[in-house]
Design a binder for these strands. Sequence first.
DNA 1: CGGCCAATTGATTAAACTCAATCTGCGTGG
DNA 2: CCACGCAGATTGAGTTTAATCAATTGGCCG
Lengths: 250, 250
Amino acid sequence: MSSGLIADLQPVEAASALVRKLGALCLMSEEEIAFMEGLQNNVLEAEKGQDFIEDGADFRTTFVVLNGWAIRYCLLPSGRRQILSYALPGDILGLHVNFRAKATYSAAALTRVRLAAVDPRRMLEISQKYPILAAGLSWCTAREFAILGDQAVRLGRLGAQQRLAHLLLELWHRLELIGKNEGDLLDMPMTQTDLADTLGLSLVHINRSLMGLRKKGLVTLHRDSIRLNNIDALSAMAEFNPEHLAEFSI
Amino acid sequence: MSSGLIADLQPVEAASALVRKLGALCLMSEEEIAFMEGLQNNVLEAEKGQDFIEDGADFRTTFVVLNGWAIRYCLLPSGRRQILSYALPGDILGLHVNFRAKATYSAAALTRVRLAAVDPRRMLEISQKYPILAAGLSWCTAREFAILGDQAVRLGRLGAQQRLAHLLLELWHRLELIGKNEGDLLDMPMTQTDLADTLGLSLVHINRSLMGLRKKGLVTLHRDSIRLNNIDALSAMAEFNPEHLAEFSI
DNA sequence: CGGCCAATTGATTAAACTCAATCTGCGTGG
DNA sequence: CCACGCAGATTGAGTTTAATCAATTGGCCG
């Protein structure tokens, strides 16, 4: 990934996940980096399980995930829940809240989460002052669409084991970009109930599908993580297309 | 919807669907309207069935649908197809193509379609020159996310008849905003195979689910259209939330 | 040591898929 | 004008996948 000489010389360990993510895409000036870091000064914390965006409620704040995981989800009148996507460090929730006064989804902390609350008008400011950053945010938007599109593909056209493998691969690739994987070991803060509500399956069936992947030797289950033993085989069986998350463009 | 006195006095029949859509959201100046109309001067036509965006291919053009319907879809290696969303007149495809050089989905004409091809740099120009329009486009983006989120809800957590009813209601509300419905009669240019690939079901099951809705008296089927006999009952049974497509904000 | 949340397992039911025909409306060529 | 062909819609029958109901187990924290 970031094996350019110059990149290796820069001290990046202090950068926020968002700046790291954008930095993987384009070369930012010191001023641009400083502006993006400055955006993330207003820090909130959400406890595990706590909602911080509510479907139908007024919604006039943009959030940047600093660390921890969150979920975007919808609750139906019947009580069923559909998780739409996972928000990982560096992800932005509510980048496009301007006119629409009401949220169209809820968001909750999956782990304890640190969030930066940003006035959406400052995001508009970016478009005017920092064209490179604006293009970077536009790329983030396109990527979110691709991720949600892949979620629809999983739900609509994959079998249970495929859905699981496909989701695991998506999360692995996304965490890889922000440097949060340890080799093929994937952090798994979500419960099997969460997986069921993500993949449109029942809890029981998720459990059996996980067992199926384990018995095939494709994954090894641990307490709060999962090892992807054969990423190529998993990608093939899940019909996973990593280009949708392409980490390099230009 | 648009029952303001001033709006009623304006001659809007010549406006493009995109301008009508944005006009339902915010009051645009003559200059802004002229700019948006000017954007759509480079017109292409796609025949029914013709692809005009291909997953994985270079993608550096933004398209505005002028009339007709298109689909966004993904093809899997197994040959299965998942339709992600329908693009109706006034919808924008590839608003966020800037950095990402490759498309993450394909798009095809569902009917004969007239498209405006726009240089994405002109979209960036909007952010700098026309803040109202920029906010309007941002709203379009948020709406696209809500539509795709609803698609995930359908696929993940609704039964077959619910999925159908939910999709019909979405399309009806979206067409209503651009003034393309005749009462409760909904245009239906897609085949049952298309519906199957949209809703993650088999062709046979789509047919039986449509029959089910018909037998309940909720819809009346015609050749190329469908009548929604009881929108309230349909909304209730499909757990449909029209607020996700909210036609008025501010 | 309980109590609780999450994971696991078994047994049965229900939803949706597949395979295989058949039917229908419509355009085309004879 | 009609037979033919084709795409799309419809129906039947049997199979598969996943849901539901119902316990049971395992770990962890107070």
